[in-house]
């Protein structure tokens, strides 16, 4: 049933167009988010592996 309805799609070329649109939108959004990220927060995250033994008691 699904197979038959999809078989009638005349233009499979729509797939690459959809792919490209998703791709571009994805990276524009990602770039924007990263560009606007909070510096203090970034610094906190960066240092996370180094500070995970702060409380450690020998």
């Amino acid at each position: 049933m699904i197979k038959n309805s999809l078989a009638s799609i005349s233009d499979v070329a729509i797939y690459p167009v959809i792919s490209l649109s998703i791709f571009v939108a994805f990276f524009v959004l990602l770039g924007y988010m990263v560009f606007r990220a909070d510096k203090k927060y970034i610094k906190h995250m960066e240092e996370m592996p180094l500070t995970d033994e702060v409380y450690q008691k020998d």
């Binding site: 990602l30 988010m33 990263v34 960066e46 240092e47 180094l50």
Partner: peptide, 9 residues
Amino acid sequence: PVYSYKLSI
């Protein structure tokens, strides 16, 4: 710390 956390995102 890692060189760039933004780059890692």
